[in-house]
Structure formats: C-alpha cells, structure tokens
Amino acid sequence: MMTRRLTAVGLPAALFVVLALVPLYAGVFDDRFVLLFATRILIFAIVAVSLDFILGYGEMVSFGHAAYIGLGAYAVGILAEHDVWAAWISFPLAMAVCALFALVTGAISLRTRGVYFIMITLAFGQMAYYTTTSLSAYGGDDGLTMWGRSELFGTGLFNGDTSFYYIVFGVLLASYLILKVMTRSRFGRVLEGAKQNEARMEAIGIDPYRYRLTAFVLAGTIAGLAGALMANQAEFVSPAYMSWHRSGELIVMVILGGMGHLHGAILGAIAYMVLEETLSGYTEHWRLIFGPLLILIVLYGKGGLLGAIRGR
C-alpha cells in the first residue's frame, strides 16, 4: 500500500524534478548535446503521454498517432513559409488542424473495434503521410526547412536552448497533469469502464462512443502541439515525422514504460530514445538488435519499466 502510493505520486514527482534539472546539469558540464537530446525526448514524451491516455485508459490502439506530430509540425512550417512566425497564431492553428483530423478520422474509426481500429488508424496515418509527400509546393518528399523559430510575443524564448527546453518541459508537465486529473474524473471512469466491459456500460445507459471520441480528439490535439514544438526544435518538417514506423515506435514507448499510468509513457519515451541513441552508437544496424529486443519485451516484460520498478 505504502509503496503503491509512493510510486503513484513519488515517482512522477521525482521524474519531473530530475527533468527540470537537466539544463542545470548541461550548464555545469557544458554539455549542449544533452540539453538538445533531452528536448527531443520530452517532445516525444508529450506525444507518448497523449497516446497512453487513449491506449492505456481507453484501449484505443491507435497506429496512426505519428500523423498528429506531422500535421502539427506542418501547420507551423507552412505558416513560417508564408512568413507567419507568431506562435500565438501557429500553435493554436496546429492544434486545431489536429483536432479536426482526429474528429473526422476518429468518428469513423471508432465505429469499429479491435483489429479494424488498429488497421484503420494506420491507414489514416498513411493518408496524412502521402498527402504531405505530394505537397510539392512545400517540399514534398524532401520536407520543408524553416529558416528560424516561432516567435512568442517578441520574447525570443524559442531561440534559447534552455528557454526552449523549459517551454517543452512546461507543455509536458501541463499535459501530464491535465490528463492525469481527467483519468480520475467521471469522464476518466467512463473511459476505463468501457475498456473493462462495454456491454455493462451500455446497460447502465452510457454509450462509450462520444467519450472515446472526445479522448481521441484530445490526444490528437496534444500530439499536434508536440508536433508544433518538434518543427521548432528541428527547424525542419518532413513527411518522415508521420511514417507508420514512427507510430509503431510511439506505441513501443508506451508499452516499454508501462501503459495506463501516463508517467510510464514518459519513462518509456526516455528509455526508447536513450536505447536508440546508445545502440546506434555501436552500429548503424541497431534495429537488428532492437527488433528482437522488442519481441522479448512483448513476450516476457509485462508491465514495462513501471512493472519492473514495482517489482511485481
């Protein structure tokens, strides 16, 4: 009981404290790489948290979640191409585009269940991917380079390594807290209840569809916000952001960390990115190692990192 309370509150708190201290570490050891790498990780962590919200709590195995990163990024990139740099325009727009895409594709996908849902979200993800590859005016296959970063009311906060890191950190923290609160609300109970027994939910008068769709749109919107950050971080957007491999990796992050806790997704994102970085340091063919590793994790590593920490 004690340890459960500790891991439920203490672990995420400790995690965020450590993450908040990264720029300090980078400053003391003059390690810019760590700061940039951590920024990238946290952006993925935002996406992974949003995916865990629908996957872990709502059992919606979305295999097209990377599409939102790309859509959010393209919204920012295309606006920049037209010389619109103001974040207060581009960020809400990125989120709105993603919300709309999630609303339309989710409304159709959620009419189906199980494996149909997996395949359909995958297919819609591919649709977004191929659509951007055919945007010849915006670089097509090659992507689009941004010649700068978004502007936040003339502050230039997006340009400093440390300030940008804290923006990303803030978005992650806010996303985590908002979603966490929601999972405990009446809304969250409906999501979790529908996952456990849909027939029971309907018999008490709750049709899970609208609630699932709401969660789906919310997750897409948050992932889109992360995409907008990603465009700024890389100063480049390309269709590769939304390849289905990326969607697969996002699911891996969630499972690797331990799904259905939200902070597990953050741990998973960190672990995945560090693993990728380390393995690819040894060999460019790191997938040769990671592929079998993933299979082993699926077969024998139930509960992910959080499961291991709890020492079940």
Partner: peptide, 30 residues
C-alpha cells in the same frame, strides 16, 4: 515467435510482429 502470440491480445501481436519487421528490414539491408 508467432506461435507464442496466438493467445495474446492484438496489441502484443502488433508490437512483436513490428519487432520482426524492424529486424528483417535491417537484416536484408545488411
């Protein structure tokens, strides 16, 4: 691999076979 997955849920099947894809695409490259 696969016969260990038949009685798992779809999510596990997706992930493990995704691992197979990563491995084989890379192996072919090598």
């Amino acid at each position: 691999v696969f016969r260990r997955l038949y009685d798992r849920d779809h999510l596990d099947q997706v992930l493990a076979t995704f691992g197979v894809i990563l491995f084989l695409n890379e192996a072919v490259k090598v």
